[in-house]
Simulated assay, not measured.
Amino acid sequence: MAEAIAISRNGFPAPNPHVGCVLVREGKVVGRGWCDFAGAPHAEAMALAEAGFRARGSTAYVTLEPCNHYGRTPPCSLALLAAGVARVVVACPDTNPKASGGAERLRSAGIPTEIGLLAEEAAAENRAFLFAMANGRPLVVAKAGASLDGRIALPSGESQWITSPASREAGHRLRADLGAVLVGRRTVQLDDPQLTARIPGVVNQPLRIVLDPLNRLTGRERVFDDSAPSRHVTGVIDLEELLASLFAEGQIGVLVEGGARTIASFFEDRLVDRVELFLGAKVLGSGPSWLEGLKLQKLSAAPALRIDGLSRSGDDVRISAAVEFSAE
């Protein structure tokens, strides 16, 4: 199962979950698989194709319960049955009501099926999917690249580049992994970003969402080009309703990239679940910060960050953290 969890990290399957599958027969691995992108063969199908006839009588180790419905691909539960797999070991149950039930179908066909092996480790690779299924909205990740003193640009607006190429590549991976990226109108006007995931292996570009309450953008900005799907949100914007609509369309994650007030609006509505902060090895001394305008009246009301990742990213420091809001 540990190997299945490791290979589940491959690909960019959003809005589908990350899944890894390893087939073992007579103590030897005969097939490995994962989902490269939404619409590609699922992990079980890839592993079965590699194993061929050797899949018969094997044990399948799968990080997420095999799907049990016809979507873009046929049910993996039926594929395992047809291949003659003798036993199935699952890490996490599938909490998507449209796809769950694979374990029960396998059991009803006489295939011993267990759930729970290394469940916590497997769940960590599927944070966005499992969160979305449990909460009825996408996981919201606030991401920023800033100087060590928290500045995202000089007072003149110059910002390229504060962080390293490695950090910018990691940002592109976050876009692809979450499946949607969101910015405010001012970020588009200042930077004219394309907001695509320009890294190898990305087949389905993330949905690009722009919040523009007063409809000031022209529609000719690069974020609205045909390189990826986009949504121009105008008028009165209710962030909870927006997230609910995105979930209804199948989105499991949203990367909020800026600007400072847009990120703050998600914090104010207590809708930020995680933070990915890339701090470049520079100090600017002045200029806009990555988060502004929370209007806190006391320190005890400040959102807390539970840091669960601290690493080097090129010359930068990357901080990954869960957000905890006070009861006040």
Rank of each mutant, 00 (worst) to 15 (best):
G110D: 05
E125L: 11
V19T: 12
G314L: 14
G84S: 00
G184W: 13
A170W: 07
C76P: 09
P13Q: 02
E158Q: 11
V29Y: 15
A123G: 10
V140A: 07
S320Q: 08
V202F: 11
E249P: 00
A79E: 14
F131P: 04
T113H: 09
V283K: 07
Q205Y: 12
R186P: 00
V210D: 14
L305G: 10
H42G: 15
A146S: 09
S164E: 02
E104Y: 06
Q194D: 15
A55F: 09
D316G: 06
G235Q: 00
A43W: 12
W34F: 15
L80F: 12
G293V: 05
G259H: 05
F266T: 01
H232F: 01
Q194P: 11
R127F: 11
R105P: 00
L195W: 04
L106S: 06
S286H: 12
R261I: 14
Q205S: 04
A119G: 07
L246T: 03
A14C: 02
L284A: 08
W34T: 11
L239E: 09
E268W: 00
S164F: 03
T218K: 15
G285A: 04
P138S: 06
V181W: 03
F325V: 10
V62E: 06
W34P: 06
G219W: 07
H69N: 12
V183F: 04
L217Y: 06
P75A: 11
R25A: 14
S320M: 04
G201K: 13
S159R: 03
H69A: 13
L242E: 12
I152N: 09
S100C: 14
R107D: 02
T73N: 15
I115Y: 08
T63C: 08
E292Q: 14
T218N: 10
R32G: 04
P138L: 02
D308E: 12
L239Y: 01
T59W: 07
G293F: 01
V90W: 02
V188A: 09
T187M: 14
N68G: 03
A142V: 13
R72N: 15
K143Y: 15
A132T: 07
P13C: 10
R32Q: 10
F12L: 01
E44M: 05
G309I: 01
L80A: 01
S265M: 01
N96Q: 09
Y61M: 03
S245T: 11
N135A: 11
L23Q: 03
R25N: 15
S147C: 07
